[in-house]
Design a protein around this nucleic acid. Structure first.
Length: 821
RNA sequence: GCCGAAGUGGCGGAAUAGGCAGACGCGCACGACUCAAAAUCGUGUUCCGUGAGGAAUGUGGGUUCGAUUCCCACCUUCGGCACCA
């Protein structure tokens, strides 16, 4: 009798048993090497979608493989539960975000369990629980105490739809839109809390010793955007020093004017009465324009003269000071020296406003440059001119000190005390304040007499009140609460108010990997014993879209906490791998509005979790992703069913041929070799195809009467062990079916029998002038002379050679013979 | 404009280290089973050509006995950054 494959019953049965037995509990075990496998935790939006499955099930597979390899594996799961969408949904539906989040988590836990992943649920965390966010608050205070958190009034990005400020990283794309809702952001002047991430800019550029995708490192490097140069002090004629940053100090002698950002603090002071009206009008216009308009690519240069002059410190030239919106207050010092001869922007500006252009280097053998007739800024190699004793110095296109002219000028500037070597970064401090309700409170108190002070640590957590009105007003909902913000000053005991903004939820996710270590630990954010054993995270998997947000924030956080003495080590994670995205069948990003969403629950019901897992591993290169194919999953379903049948159908009897059995074992061990390598390298798709090939071989062997032999039994075991990380339920069921003791998931990963994997006869291709003309079968151990002779005797070779004598014969062992005529 | 990734059959993709391009799967075609269909199983399936054979891994060059793989130039798509001094 052939048994039906009842995946629902099988999956339910084993999931319950594993849970009851605590099969996946990860506890400190000093006798085993540890492996902390982490995959990004979901936001409890309501339903687990196929993207979660795509990220998590191959990660689970890898964690299971590591466990079979002998590691003590921890693979935790939790919920990144604070955040805007829950609050927006609350506004829309009237359901309290706390209730909604709780309900969503209950549903998603169940969905997560249906994956059959090896999550240790005892370690679950929910970041919106006081037990968790108490420590988010505590971390904020540690940063504050160590001068890594500060409050500043500045123009910040504000999302008019989400009604909150955003960090620089959370503003995306050409149109500078909100990462969450897609609405273009506006600028607002607001008093906000920042984390001093820029103190770590240089260290964050160092990726030594990490095993992370190049793409990720490139994204972060570009985001931080380091540039080498010098800061130089100019002086206004009124005597105010003005510092500028330049990457081209070698062009200082060509600085024929200065440009200040319209927001530069000195603008008021230096504007002469006759220019006042124009300057005021220009400033007003610049303020009205969005960043997008200001940053428009081919925009005509605009600007106005302030009426004042500065002195170029290298040649004491008197140069006019202009204001223009192409100089940004947020980069460098908000003021530049303009060298129109060698900078495209300055050139365009100078031509438009008839400002002088003085070339300070020119091509070695070319015609000499003339400021009046130049048609574009000259940016190439050359020799310095018009630059006093630097004339003749070679200028190349290298940046920083690699450029001999720059190096020489920097040294001279430092000697003269006019300037110094400086590095600038585009990277900004992390804006942490959000004018929203559903987040961790910022544990700070303001007192008229004592300013800002942290909430005493023994009073943590500052609880988020439940009775708030969620009106999207642009004000923090906590501010509207009648009593919540009223408190006393921790210094004088007098009346004081709490900070009513909440924290960016990326703060919560910057340390969740630490809370998993001991989710209920009360004397600190984590138990140091657990930290010592489990950290750092060995493998972290998740989407690349977090490259400059979560992943960069967490690196900063880890380094800051290390310097404070709370964490240790260079980085929080050793290895990172990013999966791609599953697109809809229409090749578009999945979205409810497009109606192309694939629901994993339905797939699990129709095919079982093992098939869904297998298909997600098989259907694309994991790091690439691909469009979903609802026909394609049928192939994986067929494979899983064929696996079932192979083990449960009535045996076929026959007289097995020893050569066939030897070849079956060979296939088994070759497969093991490939699958092992693929697991190491996260090549999930080829794991499945190798297993499919092996299964096909086993079917052939079965027809040839292999069932019942010791080779057959060995192959059954090998097959199931290799299948176990991929399809944990069916492999457990069939393991029991063939009479093996529970559980396959505590078995050890098998080792390759190299002898068995070896081929004894191989087919060698014979090429003549690069074209394959025939194949010959030779013994794998045959020496080159025999291979050569066999090849030359092959029918196709004789025919093609047609009597010609080979000029050269190359024998590639085990591969081919190449004959040149 | 700058930085990065990717271009292989109708489709997803495979090809340790420069060595037989297209594994595995989807789809399709034909066949078996069936009254029939589904399921299952089998055979075939890069293109051109009846065939011998020829062409082919985005395009064009190069290195090499031999290139999907290495080098140079370019094209396309996607992602990031962008008046960043």
């Amino acid at each position: 009798m052939n048994k039906p494959y009842n995946y629902s019953a099988i999956e339910k049965k084993w999931q319950e048993k594993w849970e009851n037995d605590g099969l996946y509990h990860a506890d400190i075990n000093p006798n085993k090497p540890k492996h902390y496998a982490l995959t990004m935790l979901p936001y409890p939006s309501g339903d687990l979608h196929i993207g979660h499955w795509y990220a998590m099930t191959p990660s689970d597979s890898r964690a299971r493989y590591m466990r079979m390899k002998g590691f003590n594996v921890m693979f935790p799961m939790g919920f990144d539960a604070f955040g805007l969408p829950a609050e927006n949904a609350a506004i829309k539906s009237g359901i309290h975000p706390m209730i909604r989040t709780r309900d969503n988590i209950i549903r998603m836990r169940k969905q997560l369990r249906s994956m059959g992943a090896m999550f240790d649920w005892r370690r679950e965390i929910v970041s919106s629980e006081p037990e968790y966010y108490k420590w988010s608050e505590w971390f904020f205070i540690q940063l504050y105490k160590n001068n890594l958190a500060y409050r500043k009034m500045s123009p910040v990005d504000f999302c008019p739809h989400c009604n909150t400020t955003l960090a620089r990283e959370q503003v995306w794309g050409d149109d500078r839109h909100c990462e969450r809702c897609g609405t273009p952001v506006i600028k607002k002047d607001l008093d906000q809390w920042f984390f001093k991430a820029t103190s770590y800019a240089e260290e964050l550029l160092n990726f030594d010793g990490t095993d992370w995708p190049e793409r990720l490192k490139t994204l972060q490097t570009n985001w931080i955007d380091r540039s080498e140069g010098a800061s130089v002090i100019f002086q206004t004629e009124m005597g105010d020093p003005v510092e500028v940053f330049t990457t081209r100090p070698d062009t200082l002698w060509g600085a024929t004017f200065m440009v200040f950002s319209p927001e530069h603090p000195l603008v008021e002071k230096i504007t002469t009465p006759e220019n006042q009206a124009a300057v005021t009008a220009y400033k007003a216009q610049a303020a009205r324009q969005s960043d997008i308009q200001r940053g428009a690519l081919d925009k005509e240069k605009t600007g106005v003269f302030t009426g004042s002059y500065a002195v170029n410190p290298v040649n004491l030239a008197r140069i006019p000071i202009w204001i223009a919106d192409y100089v940004l207050m947020s980069y460098g010092t908000g003021a530049i020296m303009a060298v129109p001869a060698h900078d495209e922007r300055d050139f365009a500006f100078a031509r438009k406003f008839n400002l002088p252009i003085i070339p300070v280097f020119q091509p070695e053998n070319g015609i000499s440059l003339d400021g009046n007739s130049m048609e574009a800024a000259f940016i190439a190699e050359g020799l310095m001119i018009n630059s006093d004793h630097f004339n003749g110095t070679r200028v190349n296109t290298e940046k920083g000190r690699k450029n001999p002219a720059i190096a020489a000028v920097i040294d001279w500037l430092e000697q003269q005390g006019i300037g110094k070597e400086t590095v600038n970064y585009r990277y900004r401090d992390w804006l942490i304040s959000r004018q929203r309700y559903w987040g961790s409170p910022i544990p700070m108190i303001y007192c008229k007499n004592h300013g800002w002070n942290p909430v005493p640590e023994d009073q943590l957590p500052v609880l988020l009140p439940e009775d708030v009105a969620w009106k999207p007003t642009g004000e923090s909902p906590l501010k509207l609460h009648p009593t919540w913000s009223k408190t006393t000053c921790p210094i004088c005991g007098g009346p004081a108010t709490r900070e009513t903004d909440t924290m960016d939820t990326f703060m919560c996710s910057s340390w969740y990997h630490l809370r998993y270590l001991s989710p209920h630990y009360a004397s600190g954010p984590f138990d140091p014993q657990e930290y010592k054993y489990w950290m750092p995270v060995d493998t972290y998997t998740g989407g690349i879209e977090h490259a400059t947000m979560h992943l960069l924030y967490t690196r900063f956080f880890h380094k800051a906490m290390r310097d404070i003495g709370i964490t240790s080590g260079k980085e929080p994670w050793i290895q990172i791998r990013n999966q791609g995205m599953v697109l809809g069948e229409d090749n578009e990003k999945m979205s409810k509005s497009r109606g192309n969403v694939i629901a994993p629950d339905i797939l699990v019901e129709k095919y079982g979790a093992d098939t869904v897992r297998a298909y997600l591993m098989f259907f694309a290169r994991w790091e690439m992703g691909a469009p979903w194919d609802s026909k394609g999953i049928e192939g994986s379903a067929r494979w899983i069913r064929r696996t079932w049948s192979l083990f449960t159908d009535d045996p076929v009897s026959g007289k097995p041929d020893p050569e066939m059995l030897r070849s079956l074992r060979r296939k088994a061990h070759q497969t093991l070799k490939r699958v092992t390598r693929n697991f190491e390298q996260f090549e999930f798709n080829t794991i499945i195809s190798s297993l499919m090939e092996f299964l096909n071989e086993m079917y052939k062997a079965r027809e040839a009467g292999a069932v019942g032999t010791k080779e057959w039994k060995e192959c059954q075991e090998l097959y199931l062990k290799m299948l176990a990380p991929v399809a944990p339920h069916i492999s457990e069921e069939l393991w029991a079916e063939i009479g093996k003791p529970y559980s396959i998931h505590t078995e050890t990963w098998p080792s390759v029998d190299e002898e068995a994997a070896k081929e004894d006869e191989i087919s060698i291709a014979v090429q003549i002038n690069g074209k394959v003309r025939d194949h010959v079968i030779v013994s794998a151990s045959a020496d080159d002379e025999i291979v050569k002779a066999t090849a030359l005797a092959a029918e196709g070779v004789v025919k093609t050679l047609d009597g010609k004598t080979p000029r050269k014969i190359i024998v590639v062992k085990g591969k081919l013979v190449s004959i040149v005529v």
